[in-house]
Each structure stands twice: as C-alpha cells, then as structure tokens.
Design a protein around this nucleic acid. Sequence first.
DNA 1: CGGTCAGTTGAAAGGCTTCAACGTATGTGG
DNA 2: CCACATACGTTGAAGCCTTTCAACTGACCG
Lengths: 241, 241
Amino acid sequence: METRDFLRGRRRSELTEAEIAALETAIERVETVPARKVMSRRGERMRYSTLLVEGYACRYMDARDGYRQLLSYHVPGDFVDLHGYPSRFIDHDVGTISEAKFAFIPHEQIDRIMVDRPHLAAMLWFSTLLDAALHREWIFRIGRLDAAGRLAHFLCETFCRMSAVGRVSDNGYDLPLTQQDLGEATGLTSVHVNRIVRRLREDGLAIVGRGKARILDFGQLARVGEFDSDYLYLEDGPWKA
Amino acid sequence: METRDFLRGRRRSELTEAEIAALETAIERVETVPARKVMSRRGERMRYSTLLVEGYACRYMDARDGYRQLLSYHVPGDFVDLHGYPSRFIDHDVGTISEAKFAFIPHEQIDRIMVDRPHLAAMLWFSTLLDAALHREWIFRIGRLDAAGRLAHFLCETFCRMSAVGRVSDNGYDLPLTQQDLGEATGLTSVHVNRIVRRLREDGLAIVGRGKARILDFGQLARVGEFDSDYLYLEDGPWKA
DNA sequence: CGGTCAGTTGAAAGGCTTCAACGTATGTGG
DNA sequence: CCACATACGTTGAAGCCTTTCAACTGACCG
C-alpha cells in the first residue's frame, strides 16, 4: 500500500476501494533515493509522475547569482510532480531533502485513469490544486510577513501537514532543513533565520534544530504567522482550536 | 465564441473543433462586471467556474493589518476560478481590476466534460497548472529579487501574456493597476514602487503609468528581472530572441 | 471649485543583509 | 584515539535597501 498517505487527512478526498486499487496498480516501481539528490530538472521531459511515499522533498528554482528559492516542501503522500503530467514537462527542479522513497507512475497509466475513472482523475487534479493553494500561501507569507511571521507560518504549515499524515508525536516532528534551507524557503538569509529561530525559542513558541521541530505554543505561533489552516483542506485536528 | 482566448498562444493546448464546441455549449451565461468588484470570497461554496473573456482580474488575500497580497493577475482567456471545481470551494478572494466580462460554466457541465471528454478535461487541468507555474514564479520573484527586479519581472510577465492573447501593440498594453496595486503584487510599498517605476523610465527600460505599460527594452528588463518565459508555456514570440 | 484619489518627493528610521570570525558537532584517516 | 576537515550554527558590527511618515502636486469629477 504505497498510496496509503495519498490525500490522507484531507477533506473532499473520498476514494473508493476500487479507486485506491487502481492507483496502486498504476505504480510501475518503487525506488529509494538518497538525501539531497536532484530528482527532476527544469525543462526535462516527463514520462511518469512520482508519489512521495516516505521522506521529504522540495521544489526549487535557482537564481542567476547561485541563490535558491524553495517553492514547496513535500511530505509523504504528496504526488510531487503530477504537474508534469498534462504538459509533459516541468518548469522547476525537484529534489530530495532526506532519503526518500518514491512510487513511479507512468503517464500512460494516468491516461487510462483519465479515461476510465473520471472521479479518481478529479482527485488527482484536486491534489495538484492543493499544491497551487500551498503556493498562494507561500506568496502571501513572503510578500506580507516579516521574518518572524514567515518562520512561524512555515512551522505552522509543516506541523499541520505532518500531523495530517501521522508524523507528529508530542508536538514534535522531523524537519531535516538547515537554517540555510529555511532561509531559501522564506526569502531570508541563514544568518537572520538563526536570530529568529533563537527568538522563537526564547519566547517559548517553538524549538527548531538538529533536524527536528517542536511546537510549544501553536496558538501564539499561528498569531505571529497569521496562519489559518483552511488552505490545507484538512480534516479537523488540533490546529482548529 | 467566448472561449476564443482560452489557452490561446500556449504550447500543448491543441483543442479539436468538437472540444471547443463542447466548452462553448457548457457556458450558462456571460456577464459584465464593474471594475474593482469582488467576484468570489474565501470560503465561498462554488457552483460554477468562470472564464475571463475580456478585461482584467486578480486573486488576492488580506493580511490582518489590512494590507493585501495579490496572488495572480488575470488576462482574457484565463479560467480564473477553475480551482474551485474539484474542491467545491476556494481559499482566496477573486476580484476584477477593470470592468470585465466573464463566462459562467456550471460545475455539472464540467462533471460531464470529465466523463465524456478526457482530453478536454486534461486541458482544463493543464490550465490550472499554468496558474500553479505562475504562482511558483511569483514566489521566486518576491523571495529572491530586489525591488527593481520584481517590477521588471512582473512587467515581462504581463507583456508576454498580453502579447499571447493579442493585446499588445507597439510594445504597449493596458495595465490598469495603481502603484498601490503593483506594490501589493510585488511585496513592496506604493512609495517604493513609485521610485522604481521612475528609475525604470529614466533607464529607458519601460514606461508605466496612466493604466498603460510600454516596454522599451525587453532584453534589459528581462535581465534585471531574471525573467525566462518558459513557465508560461507560450508559442514562440518576440520574447524569445 | 472643493473633494478625492493617484502619484511624487524628501527625510528619518528600521529590518534585514553582508561580512567576518568563532564555536560545535560529526566523521575520517593516520 | 587524536588530528584534521567539513558542515552547520552562532554572534557582532556596519551598511543599505526598503519602509514609514509627512507633505505636496496634479488629474478628474460631481
């Protein structure tokens, strides 16, 4: 059951047994990829899409001067490059953060789903729109929040998403990002991320470091980050007070 | 032919006559909406999706302190809130910029397209992924470029998109955005936008004002904004030197 | 012709970056 | 088991890009 976490914890994602089985049989192979490895490159022709089964990955773009901008962060259950299906190629890079396990689904299999299973097709479409909603929230985060707000918002987001796929215990979860990575996700320098992480810790909001995050005061963190989990389309959980 | 501009000028968007006809007959009604009017509100239940036929619109989110963040800018041919189809509601606001004409397509009609016309359905899906690609570029723009770069990038993007749908003449096009709006799109204040617009003009790159933009030196503007039109999936045009 | 809204400009303040050095953990080879 | 390399994290000081605050201009309109 490699598709176990696909759309897990999301509203409006009712899949029938038959649909889950269809998705499962569409998988060609499952592969484990080392940490910090490029999976797909900008402009590359895509013949399959990959579902992240275990581990963490991200999308990113490179600026001319060598700086990176992270575009999204992915957790198990995310259909990472389904964006390459309708257009047959992708416009950004995809890479792993930690060691990760991917299920490969050839595009011909998705073609068949489009023809035979309109509802499952709509759910695949839906999952790419969840990414779009995530992107919009990142625009808001970077465009309108200050450094502390950006970090707080990012932490709230990862907390909720990890919780939805059962990867949170005692308000802590794996977050294998360096301060450099966090800066590339939030449009900040690693130096400034360092100072903000420290402030969040001193203020008792969250502890970030050593590949882990622990949320100490979600309510306060959500206030600082102007975070509202609606855009994640999650079933009810601890983040809805 | 209200769907005349749908996917116009985009690569990988071959629609058959029958598909265009099917889309055309899916339209329930066409409506003209005044400038600066809210079309859909965050959290609203959606029963139809709208195709922008003429005029300009945008997506946006409000921050607590009253500031807005624009999330995308829409030109004729854009299927603005198709994002509300698979999930039945939207997570952001949509409003007009100028007076605009919309074609309304009920979700039941899209359901039928999903069942009867898998290829057209894939094209609808594709059009929402163009939005996602746009969102990613906006993240990059705001996260990694300075003020001049952000404005330059935004101008290159609107220039290319307007050109693709035949709304550019003599390198000039309608851009009915105030400097305040431009600031909300780029994560800047209107005061700073003013200074940058002035600099772009003095440097001979572009003239922005009075609801119009004119590109004087696209190559230089693209360099400043680190702009590459790949993500727009456009047929060849003047922007590919 | 006053009122409003967009645009313009100057001066001061501030948040974040830059630069640079140092600390700390982990791993590897002699 | 220590010496060394490397990568990540920490801290301070200086500088700059952008914001903030404030005032003024110009265009349009009832």
